[in-house]
Write a protein that binds this DNA or RNA. Structure first.
Length: 438
RNA sequence: GGCCCCAUCGUCUAUCGGCUAGGACACAAGCUUUUCAUGCUUGUUAGAGGAGUUCGACUCUCCUUGGGGCUGCCA
């Protein structure tokens, strides 16, 4: 046994929970760090929910995060003959027995139970939690085959791990109790027991398991909201592990070379959306100009806006990139540049335009801007600065911003005016003065 | 109830017996000759409680308290 083999074994239910994908990330990192193999096993035994679409969504989500797997994907349903073979073996060796039972939901029939040892201690050395031990007598016999003849998780999981030659099982904390059972199955089957590492759960502010009620909980949702996969990956990794120094934003190469499963934390980690947002902004800032420009162009086009041939996109990008927290914010931030059909924010209009004297102020500016010798941000700024006579530029800046963009925030005002050009600026100032101001 | 696990700022964490307890997010203040943002500087805030071991404990041991997980013909 020279090579480490780990696996990610999700049930394809259509949505991939962040806790689950974090387990995938740790598995992937472990494999890449050790030069081992990262395997994918699709636990598709729930025929109702395991649709081709759900499987496609799972694969898509892994691809998005850059979790490439080795060898062919393994489908649990296809291994059913092997599961039953193992059950026969257990039956024959006396490790399992048939039994009449009534399930919780009232089903009655014959199931096959795994027979737990009646004495002794089951122990294992968990890579993240340390020494774990439990008296065999504290664990009851459990079902491994349903009355309809289908294999249950416990046996399927163990047999698949044997068949995939998995050496390290890195999975969620909720499986700790199962591990004691699974170890017994491995032994009963005469297979070698893999090493285990149990990852703590991701919890909400109240300390309860993080669910969709607490906010975005599935990978797809983060994607839709404009999070960068690298940011989510990095944040999830840091939730329970750190490189040992103060670095937080790490490259994939750093993650791979520094990752150490033994240094993963035992305690549950609270999910902090604010920090993820910060991380996302960090990654957006670090995007190359080319990549950000492409994102901008694509997203703007998708919203039906047209960027003129000779547009100074480079300048817009230089202004917008550092201010972008979510890629999804790009279209609304760009709308006023590429379309005259932008919405006016009611609050901003109320606060900045529907005030005594604003109309006159804007009309005065129209005159001054008309006479401006050059249409460049620094000159425009000087022009307004002169007007403010050393005082704050707020009384001019805010009404102009709302008049030309409809919003109270955005890139630097004078840069905005430069990008808009003289004609559009004048046209919008006039329109606001005559139709919106009081 | 039984069994298992956990415990440093509000949050993520550093510390592997020497600590004036460090960093990041968030929050607050200031600066960038007073639009927003970025950037920079500064500030507030932490070792659940109690015993023990030790010259010395946030670090080791035990107890208490608090939190979480599991206890399915779900995975």
């Amino acid at each position: 046994m020279s090579e480490f083999r780990v696996r990610f074994a999700p049930s394809p239910t259509g949505k991939v929970h962040i806790g689950n994908i974090r387990a995938a990330i740790y598995n992937w990192l472990f494999a890449r760090h050790t030069g081992g193999k990262f395997l994918l096993r699709v636990e598709d035994t729930d025929l109702e929910r395991s649709t081709p679409e759900a499987i496609e969504a799972l694969l898509e989500c892994m691809k998005w995060l850059g979790l490439d797997y080795d060898e062919e994907a393994f489908y649990q349903t296809k291994n059913k003959p092997r599961h039953m073979e193992a059950v026969e073996k257990l039956l024959a060796s006396g490790h399992a027995y048939k039994c009449e039972r009534t399930s919780r939901d009232g089903k009655t029939g014959q199931v096959i139970m795994f027979k737990m040892p009646k004495e002794g201690v089951i122990e294992f050395d968990d890579i993240v939690k340390g020494k774990m031990a439990k008296k065999a007598e504290d664990i009851q016999d459990f079902a491994i085959v349903r009355s309809d003849g289908s294999p249950i998780f416990h046996i399927a999981n163990v047999v698949d791990d044997i068949d995939q030659r998995v050496t390290h099982i890195i999975r969620g904390d909720d499986h700790v109790e199962n591990t004691f059972k699974h170890i017994c199955i491995f032994k009963a089957l005469g297979a070698s027991v893999p090493k285990y590492g149990h990852l703590s759960m991701i919890v909400n502010q109240q300390g309860k398991p993080y669910s969709k009620r607490d906010g975005a909980a599935f990978v797809g949702e983060f994607r839709e909201q404009g999070y960068l996969p690298e940011a989510l990956f990095n944040y999830l990794l840091l939730l329970g592990w750190n490189p040992g120094d103060d670095r937080e934003v790490l490259t994939k190469e750093e993650m791979v070379s520094l990752f150490d499963l033994e240094k993963v934390h035992v305690t549950a980690a609270k999910f902090d959306m604010k920090k993820l947002q910060w991380m996302n902004a960090e990654y957006i800032k670090r995007l190359s100009e080319e990549v950000f420009t492409n994102e901008l162009l694509n997203r703007v086009a998708k919203e039906g806006m047209v960027v003129p041939e000779d547009y100074d996109v480079k300048y817009l990008v230089s202004q917008l990139q550092i201010r972008t927290k979510f890629l999804n914010d790009i279209p609304s931030a760009c709308r006023c540049f590429f379309s005259d059909d932008f919405a006016f924010d009611e609050k901003a209009v109320e606060k900045r335009l529907k005030k005594e004297g604003v109309k006159e102020l804007l009309l005065d500016l129209v005159e001054r801007f008309t006479k401006a010798p050059v249409w460049l941000a620094p000159e425009l700024e000087n022009l307004v600065k002169e007007l403010s006579q050393g005082g704050g530029m707020g009384p001019w800046v805010h009404p102009i911003r709302v008049a030309v963009s409809g919003r109270g925030e955005g890139i630097g005002l004078f840069e905005m005016l430069q990008l808009l050009g003289r004609d559009k600026t004048l046209q919008r100032l006039k329109y606001a003065a005559e139709n919106i101001c009081i």
